[in-house]
Computed example of a mutant assay.
Amino acid sequence: MSEMIKVGMADLNVCISPNAITTLGLGSCVGIVLYDPIKKIAGMVHVMLPDSTKILNNENKAKFADTGIDELIRQMLTIGADRKSLIAKIAGGAQMFAFSNNSDMMRIGERNVEATKLKLQQLGIPIRAEDTGLNYGRTIEFYPETGELLIKSVGKERKIL
């Protein structure tokens, strides 16, 4: 019997097939799935902010793209994932509200996506699929057995990446 493992906001978790993993309500946040397709081990982090070095109260590693990805990899390796096999799929990073000025503070979704891509590039982890940006929220489910990332959004067709 398989289980759907939940990941909250500024949270992360790992799973092994046949279990699956999900996070709800990605707006400007980014859901990052890392996956070892050989061992069918997956991890997901729901990051809220791009950079832990810009925030004083930053002990929650899962809140930030830079520290959340590192912590996710660490936890995946402890349950048997192979670092060299990891691939990524990402979703979220929406611009949820229209603003008249284009200040960095208002571009949080875009900045989360940029920080995620930069960190994965630095780590040498290829992004195999993404559904990012635009102006709507997403709920994602990842199935390590098939490697499929299901994306659900209100009023939109379901997507499988």
Rank of each mutant, 00 (worst) to 15 (best):
N13Q: 08
N13R: 09
V14F: 06
C15K: 08
I16C: 15
I16M: 15
S17T: 10
S17F: 09
P18R: 07
N19F: 07
A20P: 08
A20L: 11
A20Y: 07
I21Q: 05
T22H: 15
T23V: 09
T23H: 06
L24M: 13
L24A: 14
L24V: 04
L24F: 12
L24D: 14
G25K: 13
L26C: 00
L26I: 03
G27I: 01
S28V: 00
S28M: 11
S28T: 08
S28G: 13
C29Q: 02
G31C: 05
G31L: 04
I32T: 13
V33H: 05
L34K: 09
L34Y: 05
L34R: 11
L34T: 05
Y35S: 10
Y35P: 04
Y35A: 09
Y35H: 09
D36A: 02
D36G: 02
D36V: 03
D36H: 10
P37Q: 12
P37C: 11
P37F: 10
I38C: 10
I38F: 14
I38Y: 15
I38M: 14
K39H: 11
K39C: 09
K40N: 04
I41V: 04
I41N: 08
M44Q: 07
M44K: 07
M44I: 00
V45S: 08
V45W: 05
H46S: 04
H46E: 00
H46R: 01
H46Q: 05
H46W: 03
H46C: 01
V47H: 14
V47T: 12
V47M: 11
M48V: 07
L49V: 07
P50I: 04
P50F: 03
P50H: 06
D51P: 07
D51R: 14
D51I: 01
S52Y: 00
S52V: 00
S52P: 06
T53F: 13
T53K: 15
K54Q: 14
L56R: 13
L56F: 14
L56W: 12
L56N: 12
N57K: 15
N58T: 03
E59Y: 15
N60P: 08
K61G: 01
K61S: 08
A62G: 08
A62R: 04
A62H: 04
K63Y: 07
K63N: 10
K63E: 11
F64C: 00
A65S: 07
A65T: 00
A65L: 03
A65N: 02
D66N: 10
D66M: 03
